[in-house]
Simulated scan of single mutants.
Amino acid sequence: MASVPFHYIDLRTFCYATEDEKRVEEAIRAFLPEEFEVERSTTEGYHGDRIVVLSARVEKADDVRHVLARLSELDDIDRVMDELDDRVDDNCSFFLRLDKQAAFRGEVRRGEGLTLRAKVEAYPAKREAAVENARGALEDVRAAEHGSDEGEAGA
């Protein structure tokens, strides 16, 4: 995949008072390149409890490729691609929710806890063009991952 049709990818999760902040950070880091900076902000829940918001914005092409490669590990990546019409909004943003508990274990699954938002490049900035660009990028990364698996098996 020569170019990556994403301006950036944002990842965000919440660490509630009942959770271990280091473990929650490990979950978000499961999608990030090594040594990537994770930002923290603290807010207060409805009942006065402390909530830490952990987030990261990935902008460099190689870092975006890293996140996409992790997404290609989804068992149902084909289903995600089939749902792109519903997952890309009129502002050309692609949304996906990921399982925070699975991410902590190093697994990639859809679920609750981690939010991914990716701004898709589209010229002109039309939803239909963004859907096609996102589909192409996910197909490319899926093909690259399957190709590397086959190469390793033959070695």
Rank of each mutant, 00 (worst) to 15 (best):
E145T: 05
K100V: 06
D78R: 09
D86C: 05
S93Q: 12
R50E: 11
R117Q: 14
H66K: 15
A56T: 10
E150N: 05
K100F: 13
V80I: 13
S3D: 11
A137Y: 01
R12Y: 04
R117M: 13
R29F: 06
V52P: 01
I77D: 02
K60C: 02
E132G: 02
R109Y: 14
F94I: 05
H146Y: 09
E19A: 05
V58P: 01
F6Q: 00
G48S: 09
R135P: 04
A130Y: 08
D76L: 05
A129Y: 09
F14D: 05
D85Q: 11
K22V: 11
L32M: 11
L96M: 10
A134M: 13
R135C: 04
R70W: 10
T13A: 06
V80D: 04
I77G: 01
A153V: 09
E107S: 13
E26P: 02
L54S: 05
V53A: 08
P124A: 05
S72H: 09
A56G: 03
T43A: 08
T43M: 12
R50P: 01
R87M: 12
F14W: 15
F14I: 00
G151S: 00
R135A: 01
G113M: 10
E21Q: 13
S93A: 10
K119L: 11
D75H: 14
V38Q: 11
R57T: 15
L68K: 03
V53M: 06
Y16D: 01
D82E: 14
A129Q: 09
L54E: 03
E39C: 00
R135N: 08
P5D: 10
A144C: 06
G136T: 06
I77W: 02
L84N: 09
